[in-house]
Design a protein around this nucleic acid. Structure first.
Length: 572
DNA sequence: GCCGTTTTCGGCCCGACTGTTTTCAGTCG
């Protein structure tokens, strides 16, 4: 059993205990253990065998025993006992916004509701609103929450799907008869959420390769097996399709199973206009296949410049490819530094120095630190004194970190009225200020737009952080009118963040063209709370590509000297 | 259930918001 699986068990226990109204501190201890397990670098199995699990902060005697039991048996008697007390579907209800443990318990005990389906039914019959402590507003909110839940079911975050896709790809490549293999589909296009994994491989023995795939250790179920493809399911329900073709067909199959439906359809039409035909088996002229060794050759044969996978959405990219030689797009290696990172000063896992050194080791030249501000008490936001203290530490580190620079910043909460939560004299000496909304995201369009624009107009705001507050697959963006916000950013010389955390990817890439044409600069920010989070910048680059951004549009593609200058100019 | 320690038990984050009530419980971040 893996650390992440054990962590999930503890989170499950916490949820069940919550519904049962157990001691809140016991619940927190389990949640804390889950988080610790998710993030620790320790080898749990060997610590368990040495009886040294309690050396990890947050793991005491009780939880250490449970981890050991889970490692040895894969199961936990306590969890079984809890499941006997609480029906499975009741736990799902905790995922509905507006329903916490108390209300879930009330719904379950008073209405006998034990699944989301029954809950929806009860809402439609107006039974939820009649419960004590509930009303029409809550009932409506729950109904909306259930709809959102269904809408997101069966979709995965790009980061999660990528991780599984890489596992599957590595397994496919292990087969000795595989010549080429790649991840295709929406993962290759960098879509922020995806439905399944597509892997394309070439081999002279396709059936054997597909059989090998069906027998993969991660495949808990083989959903379909045919001459054309094999589909398996991972334990978490994610589906992976493998197509194996002859090597000469590989480029066209990969191409066909990468582009969106709209892109493929547009390309089919374009090829026909050139007297050609394109499908998953090849590119044909006068019914004769044109040899294409890779995707580049396909575009060349069609008289187009190469269209990167991220752009193959059917949004006019073929037209662009006819008119220009190359797409001028940012690449991951263009990034010179990273802004928007957290440390132990607020809710980050690492010290300032550890984060800076990790960033340097990744090859970056600078790091912009922006811990939470004082009103973000839930995230350990910094008092004015702490912020000064951090600034002093940054000064010392900058003397030590040869050729690497830490910029002093803060992620300041945008308060309800649009003001930032430090006085001007505190913001003034900082190198940069990210203004972000973290609370009261439910305001109507007019109110929240006015609020955010007021923050953009603050002379100390350098960047607008995760502008819509969306959490992919769990929280819709707030009602903000982003067109107005983009215009305000242009007017006030404020940079817009592309929050690269795979849960956010905010702003949405569809809006990047508009920001670019309004003359707004963007910044690809990892919003890292731990070392691994720094690598999330790659997802930010993927969506920036989708948004058609060039190196020149992105703040943190500037050299250290240039970015220092840029920040100074913006401060004025 | 964990931590820290005056080693045996008390403290563990808490303020804002929402919707419900009519003074506050529950949820959220």
């Amino acid at each position: 059993m893996h650390k992440a699986d054990i962590a999930a068990k503890f989170a499950e226990i916490a949820g069940l205990l919550e519904i049962l109204g157990e001691n809140p501190f016991k619940i927190r201890a389990h949640l804390n253990a889950a988080r610790v397990l998710e993030t620790t670098n320790e080898d749990i199995a060997s610590l368990a065998s040495e009886g040294a699990l309690t050396s990890i902060k947050g793991i005491g005697k009780g939880i250490a025993e449970k981890i050991t039991t889970l490692l040895q048996t894969g199961d936990l008697p306590e969890l079984k006992a809890l499941h006997e007390k609480v029906p499975g579907g009741v736990l799902d209800m905790l995922k509905i916004p507006g329903l916490g443990p108390k209300r879930v318990k009330a719904v379950w005990e008073n209405l006998g509701v034990t699944t989301l389906g029954e809950l929806e039914y009860a809402c439609n019959e107006n039974r939820l609103a009649t419960l004590e402590g509930f009303g029409n507003k809550t009932q409506e909110k729950v109904l909306k929450g259930i709809a959102t839940f269904h809408q997101f079911a069966g979709r995965w975050l790009l980061s999660e799907a990528t991780k599984h896709a890489e596992t599957a790809l590595a397994w496919v490549k292990k087969h000795g008869d595989v010549k080429r293999a790649m991840i295709g589909g929406s993962i290759r296009r960098g879509k922020e959420t995806v439905r399944d994994i597509d892997i394309i491989a070439s081999s002279s023995k396709p059936l054997e390769v597909m059989e090998h795939f069906a027998n993969a250790p991660f495949a808990v179920e083989v959903i379909a097996q045919s001459l054309a493809k094999t589909s398996v399911r991972f334990e978490n329900g994610l589906q992976a399709d493998l197509r194996v073709v002859a090597d000469k067909e590989f480029p066209c199959t990969l191409y066909r199973f990468t582009g969106s439906r709209e892109h493929n359809s547009a390309m089919k039409t374009f090829a026909e206009s050139r007297g050609m035909k394109i499908n998953e088996y090849g590119l044909f002229k006068d019914k004769k296949p044109l040899p294409c060794n890779d995707e580049t050759a396909i575009f060349e044969a069609l008289g187009l410049s190469y269209i990167p996978p991220e752009l193959r959405e059917g949004l006019g990219e073929i037209e662009t490819a006819r008119n220009c030689n190359v797409f001028d797009l940012i690449e991951y290696n263009d990034l010179e530094g990273l802004f928007h990172c957290h440390t132990k000063y607020s809710d980050g896992r690492e010290t300032l120095e550890t984060m800076a050194r990790a960033c340097k080791e990744l090859g970056f030249k600078y790091l912009g630190i922006s811990d939470h501000s004082r009103s973000a008490s839930y995230a350990g936001g910094l008092s004015i004194d702490d912020l000064k203290k951090q600034g002093d530490e940054i000064d010392k580190l900058n003397d030590k970190l040869d050729g690497f620079r830490i910029f002093k910043g803060v992620e300041s909460d945008i308060l309800g009225d649009g003001t930032l939560d430090y006085p001007d004299e505190v913001l003034e000496p900082l190198d940069f200020v990210i203004a972000s909304v973290h609370s009261s995201l439910g305001m109507d369009e007019k109110k929240i737009t006015t609020r955010i624009i007021r923050a953009v107009e603050n002379p100390y705001t350098t960047m607008l952080g995760h502008p819509t507050g969306r959490l992919l697959l769990s929280r819709e963006p707030c009602a903000v009118n982003m067109f107005e916000v983009i215009d305000a950013c242009a007017k006030n010389n404020v940079i817009i963040e592309i929050n690269a955390n795979p849960h956010r990817l905010d702003i949405d890439w569809h809006l990047m063209h508009r920001a670019k044409s309004a003359g707004v600069m963007l910044s690809i920010n990892p919003d890292a709370h731990r070392i691994a989070g720094l690598r999330h910048a790659k997802y930010g680059v993927m969506v920036a590509l989708k948004g058609g951004l060039a190196k020149a549009d992105v703040l943190n593609s500037m050299s250290l000297a240039d970015v220092t200058c840029e920040l100074a100019i913006r401060k004025k």
